[in-house]
Design a protein around this nucleic acid. Structure first.
Lengths: 116, 116
DNA sequence: CTCATATATTGATGATTATCAATATCAGGG
DNA sequence: CCCTGATATTGATAATCATCAATATATGAG
């Protein structure tokens, strides 16, 4: 029920994949796939993009329901997936929930491709 | 029925997304999501990894059915998806089909994250 | 041509997912 | 306390997807 530390150290025994990575193990692959799963939806990519493009670096749900042609519950659902993937950070201020990019998360995800 | 040139120039009117990208359009997001969809499966990540790790930089289907616990038709199916996403290249030599990484494809995909 | 082997395609099935409508929670104002 | 507005959760449904069994295609050997 809580966010998985997907982008945290792999914690499956081996630390940091010993440079000359031979091939991807089943468990490791499953972890990495989770992040790409979160990115595998056009609307979620647009959500990330809008959050990133914003002046303040953050956006509330109400800023996001407009551009995308989706209902509010669906937006909330997508945002939750992005948070659980470790890509977005959620901060509740008053009635509003503000979402912002987790610093370095996109770069780290790009790095996953280099270490395949 | 043929491979989509997903990683080719965007060809949706605007060329090269004018540096200060404001936000991701619906069409653009759909295209980018296709590549991440291809990466959003653990077994496909492992296939990419094995192909990449191979000495010769290529692998035939018979090299891939072993490590993954999947039937041959399923492997073929996953490979097709990776080819259509522009990540793998397929070359038929005799009875065998050799798959290799499309040069620069992974780097280009990593770049997609930077230009969200 | 016939056979054996490697790969691809088809069709079916169970699992996952995206979406919405309805409802719940939660904070602030009166 | 009650109301309003913002966001989250639940339950249902349609679509997509991963997998397999069966079959098809294609290539080289004899």
């Amino acid at each position: 029920m809580n966010a998985l530390p997907i982008l945290e150290p792999t914690m499956d025994g081996t630390c940091c994949s010993p440079s000359g990575t031979p091939a991807l193990g089943a468990e490791e692959a499953k972890q990495k796939a989770l992040v790409f799963k979160a990115l595998a939806d056009p609307n979620r990519l647009r959500l990330l993009s809008i959050v990133k493009a914003g002046e303040s670096g953050e956006a509330c749900v109400c800023d996001l329901t407009g551009p995308l042609d989706l209902g509010q519950p669906t937006i909330s659902h997508h945002l939750k997936i992005l948070v659980e993937a470790g890509l977005l950070h959620r901060e509740k201020r008053g009635t509003w929930a503000y979402y912002s990019l987790v610093p370095g998360a996109l770069e780290e995800t790009a790095g996953l491709l280099a270490t395949l």
